[in-house]
Design a protein around this nucleic acid. Structure first.
Lengths: 90, 90
DNA sequence: GACTTATTTAGATACTTATCTAATCATCTA
DNA sequence: TAGATGATTAGATAAGTATCTAAATAAGTC
């Protein structure tokens, strides 16, 4: 599960998506508009982020609205701080 | 540069290496002993971690001693917290 | 210098992934 | 229900990566 989070964070497009969502929720289309790549590719990235638990999606009529899942962020920060502090053998 | 950090963190073997180094410095051999994979593969992982700036290496006679680079950890935590707080458009 | 031990590098293979286009699914509107 | 719009899924391709064995480099010992 942690694997998925870091793999998701490893791609700059996906990090940019997260940064966009951090300021406010957006629909898939609004997100896709921010990138020069194909709509389908952005959709794929959104799927990766959703799978990792970093974002949540909710259908709103024709649109699908994405938002940041802050819980997973917090857990990830906690994990890193724990390793950094030498406290993590697990 | 951030890319390298998250890509490095995406592999469970490498995270485990970081966790080991968090408790104390170790030589490449000591680290390799902890894993069931080939020595050369661990060496490769160490290279990835070093490249990402997450660890530093120093030759000590025949051995090469690895240690955690806490600075990059701190920066990474900072980045995540910043996104999490909605403060990062960059 | 030859031999041993510690580590990295090279080359090969299998697997994963980012991207694309085309097709499909979902919802709304006329 | 047909057509339009928004979004995901499928299939293909090219690039990246984790692993291996074998070879090379570095340092200590005899």
């Amino acid at each position: 599960m942690r694997d998925g989070v870091f793999r998701a964070l490893a791609d700059p497009t996906r990090r940019r998506i997260l940064e966009l969502l951090a300021t406010r929720d957006r629909t898939a289309g609004e997100i896709a508009d921010e990138f020069p790549i194909a709509f389908a590719s952005v959709s794929h990235h959104l799927g990766v982020l959703k799978n990792a638990g970093l974002v949540a999606a909710e259908r709103e009529g024709q649109h699908v609205r994405y938002r940041l899942n802050t819980t997973v962020f917090q857990e990830t920060v906690k994990y890193l701080m724990n390793v950094f502090a030498g406290g993590t053998d697990a």
